[in-house]
Design a protein around this nucleic acid. Structure first.
Length: 468
RNA sequence: GGCCACGUGGCGGAGUGGUGACGCAGCGGUCUGCAAAACCGUUUACCCCGGUUCAAUUCCGGGCGUGGCCUCCA
C-alpha cells in the first residue's frame, strides 16, 4: 500500500514517504475564534481528520502527531469584542477573553459532533506568544525582518524564492494590488510580524514595545514548537494558499536556516451553498451549529466526503438528503455486535480496495463507492464477515456509530406515535385485511403514514420504519 | 488587470484517442387486495468554436461560464 498525495508545492501527486515513520507529523490551520464555525470551516476539519485516521491506520495510531491550532489573537476578534461590549462598563479585554473561550468551546463541540477525532495537540496562539517573539527576534537577527514605526515587518526581498508555493511573480502582485501600501514598508509585499497594541487591544511585552503578533506568525511558531523545523504535511483551505501559507513558509524557513517547513502542502477546495458563494449578505451563511439542529453530524460528514477534497463543492439540501439516505442504507446492514467487535480491533477487517481508494490522494468519493458495494454484498449475501468489512471501513473514515440503532433512528424525524400504539394499529389493520375490509386497512395505513410511519408487509408479518 | 481551479445525463460523480463506469432519482416488471419494502430490467451526457487524427468527451489552441486568491476569509 503506497499513499499518494497531491502536493501543492510541486503541483503533482507524489508518493508519501514520511520523514520518520515512527512519528508522522501533520499541521492544519485551525479556526480564528470570533464566531460560530460555518460549513466551509468544516471541510478542512473533516478532510484532514480522514487523513489523520488513514495515517494512523498505515503507520500505527501512536506514530502520528496531528496539530490543529486555535487562533485567538486577531483583529477580527478585537473588533467583535468591542462590538459585544457595547455600552457596558466592563474591560474590553475581559469581553474578548469571554468571546474567544466561548467560541472555542463551541467549535470543539461542533467538530466533535461531526465525528472528528481530537488532534494530538490543539495549541492556542495566546499560549505561544513567547515562541513568536523569539522567532521574530531570530528573523531580525538573520536580516529577514526589520522594525519600522512600532511594527516589525518581514523583508520579502530577503528571501529569493518567496512565492514558490503560490507561484506568484512578485512584480505582478504588486501591480495588481488593491490595497494602499503602508509608507513604512520597504517593499509593498512585506508583511507584519508584530504590531503595537493600545489599551483596548490585547498586547504582550516585547523588544519592540507592547504589541501583538501579525497573522501568520502564530502558525509558524506553534508548528515549530510541536512538530519541529520540518514536518511531513501541512494542510488548510485553498484560500489560505496566499498569503497565509506563503508567509508561513517564508518566516519558518528563514528562522530555521532555510530548512523546509513541510514536505507536502495540501489544500482543500472551496465550498458554495446552493450554487452561490456563502456570505452573510446573501443570507446563505450556514453555521455548523445551525445545521446540526436539522441533521445528524454523520450526514454532514458523508456529504462532505462524497466530494474529492480538492474539487470545489456545492453544498445543497438535496445533497444532504441523498447523503442521509446513503447512510441509512449502510448503517442498516450493521448490528451492534458487529460494530462493537470492529471497535475492539480497528483496521482488522477493513476492505483493501477501500484503503486503496483513500491512499490515492484521499479519494473519499471512490472510497464511499466501495462502501456502497460492501453494503450490497452484506445485503445480498448476509454474513458476519461482510458486515465486519463494511463496519470497519466505515470506522476508518469516522462513520461507525457507537449505538447503531440509535444512529439509524436519528437519521429521520421521530414519529409522534409510540411503539405500542403502532403495534396495536398494525394488529387492527391486519384484522381488517383478513376480513377483506381493505378500506379500513388502508385508512389505518394512511393514518400511520401521516405520522411518519411507513408499513412494510412481508410473508413473515408486517414491519414498519420511519418514512424516508 | 494578474495568477489559479473547475465545467460530463434530472442530481452526484468516475473514466477513456475508437465497445455510453457507478450511485441516487425516474421508468418498466415480479411480488402484493392495493401500496410500501425487496428483487429483476432500463432511458438520458461529455460548455462552445477551431486544430491534430482514420477517429476526440478524452490531446492542442481560442472563447464562454462558475468559483478562488491578489495583506489578515477555511
Amino acid at each position: 500500500m503506497t499513499l499518494r498525495l497531491y502536493n501543492t508545492l510541486t503541483r503533482r501527486k507524489e508518493e508519501f514517504v514520511p520523514l520518520d515513520p515512527a512519528n508522522v507529523r501533520m499541521y492544519v490551520c485551525g479556526p480564528t475564534v470570533y464566531d460560530y464555525a460555518h460549513i466551509g470551516n468544516a471541510r478542512p476539519v473533516i478532510v484532514f481528520d480522514v487523513l489523520f485516521r488513514l495515517l494512523r491506520h498505515l503507520y500505527g495510531a501512536e506514530h502520528v502527531t496531528y496539530v490543529r491550532n486555535i487562533t485567538d489573537i486577531d483583529d477580527k476578534i478585537n473588533a467583535r469584542a468591542l462590538e459585544r461590549r457595547g455600552a457596558r462598563n466592563v474591560p474590553v479585554l475581559d469581553v474578548l477573553r469571554e468571546l474567544t473561550e466561548e467560541t472555542q468551546a463551541q467549535y470543539l463541540a461542533d467538530v466533535t459532533t461531526l465525528g472528528n477525532l481530537p488532534p494530538t495537540h490543539t495549541p492556542r496562539a495566546t499560549d505561544h506568544v513567547p515562541q513568536m517573539i523569539a522567532m521574530i527576534a531570530a528573523l531580525i537577527e538573520g536580516g529577514h525582518a526589520y522594525a519600522a514605526n512600532g511594527h516589525v515587518l518581514f523583508d520579502v526581498a530577503s528571501k529569493s524564492d518567496y512565492g514558490k508555493l503560490s507561484r506568484r511573480p512578485l512584480d505582478e502582485m504588486i501591480a495588481g494590488a488593491r490595497v494602499e501600501v503602508a509608507p513604512y514598508k520597504k517593499n509593498p509585499m512585506d508583511f507584519v510580524l508584530w504590531k503595537p497594541s493600545d489599551e483596548n487591544t490585547p498586547g504582550w511585552k516585547s523588544p519592540w514595545g507592547r504589541g501583538r503578533p501579525g497573522w501568520h506568525i502564530e502558525c509558524s511558531a506553534m508548528a515549530g514548537d510541536y512538530l519541529g523545523e520540518t514536518f511531513d504535511i501541512h494542510g488548510g483551505g485553498i484560500d489560505l494558499l496566499f498569503p497565509h501559507h506563503e508567509n508561513e513558509i517564508a518566516q519558518s524557513e528563514c528562522a530555521h536556516d532555510g530548512h523546509p517547513l513541510a514536505k507536502v502542502w495540501m489544500h482543500n477546495g472551496f465550498l458554495q451553498v446552493e450554487g452561490e458563494k456563502m456570505s452573510k449578505s446573501l443570507g446563505n451563511f450556514v453555521t455548523i451549529h445551525d445545521l446540526l439542529k436539522d441533521w445528524p453530524g454523520d450526514v454532514l460528514r458523508v456529504n462532505m466526503l462524497k466530494r474529492h477534497y480538492r474539487l470545489p463543492m456545492d453544498w445543497t439540501v438535496i445533497g444532504m438528503t441523498e447523503s442521509r439516505n446513503l447512510l441509512f442504507e449502510w448503517l442498516g446492514q450493521l448490528t451492534q455486535e458487529v460494530a462493537d467487535a470492529v471497535r475492539l480491533e480497528p483496521g482488522r477487517y477493513v476492505s483493501a480496495d477501500f484503503v486503496e481508494a483513500l491512499a490515492d490522494d484521499l479519494n473519499t468519493h471512490s472510497a464511499l463507492q466501495e462502501v456502497h458495494r460492501l453494503r450490497n454484498v452484506a445485503a445480498h449475501k448476509p454474513s458476519r464477515g461482510a458486515k465486519l468489512t463494511l463496519a470497519d471501513s466505515l470506522q476508518l473514515i469516522g462513520l461507525l456509530p457507537f449505538n447503531v440503532s440509535q444512529s439509524i433512528q436519528d437519521l429521520f424525524p421521530n414519529p409522534s406515535a409510540d411503539n405500542n400504539e403502532i403495534a396495536r394499529a398494525i394488529e387492527a389493520r391486519n384484522a381488517a385485511r383478513a376480513a377483506k375490509n381493505f378500506a379500513e386497512a388502508d385508512r389505518i395505513r394512511d393514518d400511520l403514514l401521516a405520522q411518519g410511519i411507513q408499513l412494510k408487509d412481508s410473508p413473515s408479518g408486517t414491519t414498519w420504519e420511519v418514512k424516508r
